[in-house]
């Protein structure tokens, strides 16, 4: 109606109150992941669990046949796809398939298209895999999951940030504060804290919740290894040109981060180069 004014509550309390409006992360994925961690379980049980999820079924077949996995023959059955992919790759497909509906949404508030958010979310998982391989990280799935879900808070904060983003950018430029510091000043919280609350409510493991909470805060991420690796992977993804939107590069990196993780120049160059090559092979996943 003419003359009506719509008032949007931009407070953090309001954002937290409405987090539960997001559809809950599918429980079948957690069940499948748990099954995969059980040494006595077999792939038939897994196939039985996910067989009736048409989306998952199709994604396993599409990815088993994609360039990424480099299989020499056409895979047409779910049990064949599972047998060929290996445990870590099955976990990745499960997580990526379940995450996509949340992470391919346009975020006008942050100046990103849905495709860009999804591209960034996948690209950082590729970096995490390269890092895990080169550093011999045992629990690569935990880092992979933290990386995949790290920007989920942006989905919940999109509208509020959209109303305040010029104020946030002004603070970044005038006071030389990072984008997340400016988010705190303007709306009383950042996408990291909101994202961690979403993951807590979805019952993700505590260490992932904590790493997502910490990933842009140098004073916090310097304190535990998963947070350090998540922040490093995010940083490298930005260096690769695979971060988009208003906040790209508008962060501060802790000066001791490379020392804490033993990152040398050559290691970083190696990870960046391999990640770019791996990401080019992973493009099929963008179109799940």
């Amino acid at each position: 109606m003419k003359g009506d004014t719509v008032v949007i509550d931009t407070s953090l309390e309001h954002i937290f109150e409405h987090i539960n409006q997001l559809p809950v992360f599918p429980k079948v994925v957690f069940k499948a992941l748990k099954l995969l961690d059980d040494p006595d379980a077999n792939l038939k049980e897994l196939a039985d669990l996910i067989r009736y999820d048409q989306g998952l079924n199709a994604n396993f077949l599409r990815l088993a046949n994609s360039a990424r996995f480099g299989l020499s023959r056409q895979v047409t059955r779910l049990d064949m796809a599972l047998a060929l992919l290996g445990i870590d790759q099955i976990k990745e497909v499960l997580l990526v398939s379940a995450a996509k509906p949340y992470l391919d949404k346009p975020l006008q508030g942050y100046g990103m298209s849905g495709f860009e958010l999804w591209t960034h979310s996948l690209a950082i998982t590729v970096v995490s895999e390269v890092v895990s391989r080169k550093m011999g990280i045992q629990d690569s799935t935990t880092l992979f999951t933290a990386c995949l879900m790290h920007d989920i808070g942006k989905v919940a904060m999109n509208v509020q940030i959209g109303l305040k983003n010029s104020e946030i950018l002004q603070l970044v430029h005038q006071e030389n504060v990072s984008f997340n510091e400016a988010e705190w000043k303007v709306v009383g919280g950042d996408h990291a804290v909101v994202g961690s609350e979403i993951l807590r409510q979805w019952e993700f493991p505590f260490e992932i919740v904590r790493a997502v909470r910490n990933h842009h805060d140098p004073d916090l991420y310097i304190q535990d290894e998963l947070s350090l690796w998540l922040s490093s992977c995010n940083t490298m993804t930005t260096l690769m040109g695979l971060s988009y939107g208003l906040d790209t590069f508008m962060y501060k990196i802790h000066p001791d981060l490379p020392k804490k993780l033993g990152l040398t120049y050559d290691f970083l160059f190696d990870v960046l180069q391999d990640s770019v090559i791996e990401f080019e092979k992973t493009r099929d996943m963008l179109y799940l």
Partner: peptide, 14 residues
């Protein structure tokens, strides 16, 4: 050669 607001030299690849 984009760069962060501040970073250790290892990450200032640009």
């Amino acid at each position: 050669a984009g760069s962060f607001l501040s970073s250790p030299p290892q990450f200032d690849i640009g």
